[in-house]
């Protein structure tokens, strides 16, 4: 570990949520490191705990949640922040772009109200200055008639436009880290590309670090420097995006890769991973993936694998793949 701490370090994070009055582990063990200015993708199926992990970065967990491990921003523990410090942290250092802008932007207030609120209410910026600033950012994210849009209400804007508004609101806070929680999932395909391009541009222009949460491995590899794969509440593999296709070591990562339709292999059968994804609290004593894994052995069912580093990547598996993957080579 170097002398200066990374921008974000999620270290052995566990989250228990009360379910029927009893605390149930939803996230078991999440490890993510994001250096200043880097882009990291957190990939997993629905229910794998990736969104909850991102919310833990903001200290934005549901009531009754219990936290293990640590989330540290530039060396400072988020859980240890006093309320006022946490508010300033949310207002100026981290910003989140949510999945569904239609639900996540107050439908009863004007777009302009939403945009300037982050500046006027949290930092005491004068309304006129805030308007000038967000108008500029709206143009930057490709909204030409910014003044008119500011006066409109969210229901008058399309989903893609509204997601740009959300991104503009996040950028207006001048954060050092952008959390994007499936920012394109609620949009149609052509809009998805535009929105991803806007995020990539903004990141480049501002030197922003990005935690990109998605279920789409290939999109993650295209946008980010490093990939973290999460399954049933645990991060199972961490590797450079460029190594994803050939050097993925965890059977779950390989299974995910081969269950995606490819444009280069037209006519090939679409494979699915046998079994169903587990929620964090359903996980057995051994490896969470053991029931669905083609390489499972007795040890996998009794002993949970710890993450272990090999070269540039880390995998939590007793029997990781070591040979480079050939196309579809990972299936028995």
């Amino acid at each position: 570990m170097s002398a200066t701490p990374p921008l974000l370090r999620i270290d052995g994070l566990g989250i228990d949520l009360p379910l029927d009055g009893e605390p149930r582990p939803i996230v078991h063990r999440a490890d993510v490191v994001i250096p200043e200015g880097a882009a990291v993708a957190l990939v997993g199926e629905s229910g794998s705990g990736k969104s909850l992990t991102a919310r833990a970065v903001l200290g934005l967990l549901p009531a009754g949640a219990r936290l293990h491990g640590d989330v540290a921003f530039a060396g400072e523990s988020v859980a240890g922040m006093a309320p006022e410090r946490l508010r300033r942290f949310r207002a100026g250092e981290v910003a989140m772009v949510f999945q569904d802008p239609r639900a996540h932007i107050n439908p009863a207030r004007s777009v302009g109200d939403f945009l300037i609120e982050g500046l006027t209410l949290t930092r005491g910026v004068r309304a006129a200055d805030a308007v000038r600033k967000v108008t500029g950012i709206l143009r930057e994210v490709g909204i030409a008639d910014a003044e008119r849009r500011m006066r409109q209400r969210p229901h008058e804007l399309s989903g893609g436009l509204l997601q740009r508004v959300m991104i503009a609101a996040a950028l207006a806070a001048e954060p050092r880290l952008l959390l994007a929680d499936e920012p394109t999932t609620a949009l149609d395909v052509t809009t998805q590309e535009e929105v991803m391009a806007i995020i990539a541009e903004a990141r480049e222009a501002r030197g922003l670090a990005l935690l990109f949460i998605t279920h789409d491995l290939e999109l993650a590899a295209a946008v980010c420097d490093r990939i973290v794969v999460m399954y049933a509440g645990s991060t199972v593999e961490e590797l450079p995006a460029g190594h994803l296709r050939e050097r993925a070591a965890h059977p779950y990562t390989r299974a995910l890769l081969s269950s995606r339709p490819s444009v280069f292999e037209a006519g090939a059968d679409l494979r699915s991973i046998p079994g169903r994804p587990l929620s964090g609290f359903e996980v057995p004593d051994g490896c969470a993936f053991s029931d669905r894994c083609p390489r499972v052995r007795d040890r996998c069912r009794s002993e949970r694998p710890a993450p272990s580093a090999a070269g540039d990547s880390t995998a939590a598996c007793h029997f990781p793949y070591t040979a480079p993957a050939e196309e579809a080579g990972c299936h028995a």
């Binding site: 903001l58 946490l86 508010r87 949310r90 569904d100 996540h104 609120e117 982050g118």
Partner: peptide
């Protein structure tokens, strides 16, 4: 419980606001 309230909190808007 609504999502837009979560957004406001995630931006550090003071609770009374």
């Amino acid at each position: 419980r609504s999502e837009h309230v979560e957004t406001a909190r995630s931006r550090g808007v003071p609770e009374h606001a």
